[in-house]
Every structure is written in structure tokens, then in C-alpha cells.
Design a protein around this nucleic acid. Structure first.
Lengths: 209, 209
DNA sequence: GTACTGTTGAAACGAACGTTTTATTGAATC
DNA sequence: GATTCAATAAAACGTTCGTTTCAACAGTAC
């Protein structure tokens, strides 16, 4: 339990935003949960919108930095290694500590939030990471057209976003047959699936027949 | 432009909910956009929450019914055929007509919406469809463990949800190198990727090495 | 014409929202 | 010890929200 007002606000905002949605979370319930004064939000941050940006940036930035570190540490990486560098920082950030679920929902909903929610820095971070990984995959799969690479990398992001953003739904449908308690097992499932998808042949042939 | 009040409300709600978010869309801006009286929402539907359920159900129900039709029309389907039956109704509903984008965002965000948004009928519909397709995939891939099937089917859903829910983000990052104007091309990309992912071998071996 | 039913219109309700203002605290600086 | 300043507290600001109320207006049956 942090003693600093600013961090208490960020922690409560992360938890409440992810569980109730941003628009459905009032600053009054937020400051009550964080046990700080109502005006503290507008004092430490300028507005509720700026608080949202701060909440997102605090989590997204370290993850993307770690992704870049892992990727550049590899020389001529295989598809599996590239995907590991992409997924691992997010999975570990999400399944570490009691606040993991909130972080997961936050990241899972990042990509499909309406309006100007992920503007500015956060969007730029994501675009940078996307470009870097797209180029790395392109080098590992020289035969695949660029448009196909782009589609498939977005599919890889969708796999992660859905795994994080729909945890309750997935657990409910699985009825105990799968669990979120083993990060390495989830990573393995994601990488195995996405690796095969990225390497799939027949971009121009119809696979539905 | 529909002349019926109830349908005008549903159409405007679908458009505004998907572009601005549900909580950020007031009934006043909604009824103004639909050119109906403010009280019409609480008259034809009971509340804003019930309107949300109606908006979702109107789109999700036909798609899932069509999925079931296509799947049961196949005898012993291949993975590609199963995926076609799952993806096609959604892709065609999403890219048909000018309201396609709104439907897309709506479906894309269905799975990761917070709270009790997709309660009741809509959630039951999704669970039914999931169970049916999971069993069909299981039959087509008898060697794959059930837990792996469940994970991978959720990955397939994530691919679709992200493709629909993050259209603006994807288009922005692609810088014109990919487009949403060809339903068959998108279907082919999704099916090719997901089909390879579903059939991937090595669930228990680490693909990252 | 009259009564009835389903729908629309305009106005108002109380509550909750994000933000701002004004005071008050508590410790560091000289 | 007075001063200064970042931080907190309490109250109020004006606005907007979902919902309700009640009157007006269609149609149709009798």
C-alpha cells in the first residue's frame, strides 16, 4: 500500500478504470478508494484525461522498453524468439503481483478503446514497437508479402489483447479447464499458435476449401 | 433512413456507442442524432442499459445463427471450413453497408467490455457458439488436448475481435499498405493465419528456442 | 362525436459529474 | 520566530446526466 498520494491515485485509477471502465469511474469514487482528497487528482494531474494518459503510460512504457531490449539482444532471431520478445514482457507484467489482473484488462482494452483515449505518447510507443517488430518478422520471413506481415502481426496483437482483456469471459467459458496461473504455459500457448500463424503458407490460396 | 422511431434509436445508438463509447454517449445527443424525442428511449426501451442490450442483440444474434447454419451444413468439416463458418458471417455483416464500421467496433469491443455489459442473452449466445465450434474443432483435431483447443479457439476470437475493434489503429499503423475494403481478402488472411495456428504442433515443446 | 390506446412533445426532477476556489496545514528557509 | 510554499482539506461552482411526469396528438372502435 503506497504512502504517496500520486501513486495511490494511479493505483486506484488502474484498478477502477480496468474493472468499471474509464467513463464509469468518477473522481469521487476514485479518490475515496485511494483515500485522498477529491481535489488531489486535479492538483497532481491536470485533469481526468491527463490521469488516464498517466495510468496507461506507466504500464505501457516499461513493457515496450523491455520488448526492445529483448529483441535487440537477439542477432538473427527466429519467429519463435521474436514472438517471445514481444509477448513475454506483457505476460510477465500482467501475471506478476496482485494488481496483475487490472494491468491485463488495461492492456487488453488499450487497442479498442474509442476516441482519443490512446493519443499522444502511448500511441507513439505502440507505433514504434509495431514497426520494429514488423521489420524483424519481415527479415525472418523474406518470402511473405509485406501486407501479409502487417495483417499477421496485428493478429498476434489481437491474440494478446484478447487473452488479457477477456480473462473473465474466457475463464467463464472454460469452466475450469484452463487457468491463468501459469505464465509460462500461457506464453507457450500464445507463441505456438502465433508462430504457426505467422509462418503459414498460402496467402493467396483459399484455405477454406 | 428508417422512419420507425425504435429503429432510428437503435441505429443511432449503434453508431454513437461504437464511435464514442457507451458511457460517453448521452441520451440527449443520441435522441438528437436520431431526431426523436428524449423520452422515446425510456418509452420504447425501459432504460439506457436495456437499450444497450437491444443494440448488441440485434447484431450478434443473426451472426451467431448464421454461424450455426454454416457449420451444421458441413459434414466432417476441415479446420479451414470451420473457420470460414465462424468468421464469414461476422466479416460479411461488418463490411456490408455504410453502418459496417459501427457494427465492427461493436463486435470488436463486445468481448472486453467491462462490467455487466454483455450479460444475459448476449453472453449466452456467445457461450453456445463457443461450445459448438470447440467441439467441431476437437473432432477435426483429435490429437490436440482439450485445454489447447480452448486456448486456440479464444485466440481465433481475439484475431477477429482485434481486426474489428481496432480498425482505425490498424489502418493508421499500416499507412495505406493494407485496406479493409475487400471482405474476401480479409477472410483469407484471417483463415490462413488461424488455420495454421489451430493445427500447430508442439503444444508441450517450447517454440521460443 | 366519444372513448380508448399507443405514441410523441416539452418541461422538470434530483442526483452526480469534473473542476475550481478558498482555507488550512506542516515542514523547510532565512 | 516569521515567512514561504507545496500539499491537503472542505465547500461550492455550473453543467450534464438518466429518468419521470403530464399534456397533446394521432388513430380506431363503437
Amino acid at each position: 500500500m503506497p504512502t504517496d498520494t500520486k501513486e495511490r491515485i494511479l493505483d486506484s485509477a488502474e484498478l477502477l478504470f480496468s474493472s468499471q471502465g474509464i467513463a464509469n469511474t468518477s473522481l469521487r469514487s476514485l479518490t475515496e478508494h485511494a483515500q485522498v482528497n477529491l481535489a488531489a487528482v486535479n492538483y497532481h494531474f491536470q485533469s481526468k484525461d491527463a490521469l488516464v494518459q498517466a495510468v496507461l503510460f506507466r504500464r505501457v512504457n516499461p513493457i515496450n522498453q523491455r520488448r526492445m531490449e529483448l529483441l535487440t539482444a537477439l542477432g538473427q532471431p527466429s519467429i519463435g524468439q521474436i514472438l517471445d520478445a514481444f509477448y513475454r514482457p506483457a505476460v510477465e507484467a500482467v501475471l506478476a503481483g496482485p494488481e496483475g489482473r487490472a494491468v491485463a484488462r488495461l492492456i487488453g482494452r488499450l487497442y479498442s478503446e474509442p476516441g482519443d483515449l490512446l493519443a499522444g505518447q502511448v500511441r507513439a510507443l505502440m507505433a514504434d514497437t509495431f514497426r520494429t517488430f514488423a521489420e524483424s518478422i519481415q527479415r525472418a520471413l523474406p518470402g511473405v508479402p509485406q501486407a501479409t506481415i502487417i495483417w499477421r502481426l496485428h493478429f498476434c496483437i489481437g491474440i494478446m489483447a484478447h487473452t488479457f482483456g477477456a480473462m473473465e469471459l474466457i475463464e467463464g467459458m472454460a469452466r475450469g479447464r484452463i487457468a491463468y496461473d501459469d505464465p509460462e504455459a500461457i506464453l507457450r500457448q500464445m507463441i505456438t499458435f502465433a508462430s504457426a500463424g505467422l509462418r503459414a503458407e498460402g496467402e493467396s490460396t483459399c484455405a477454406a476449401s
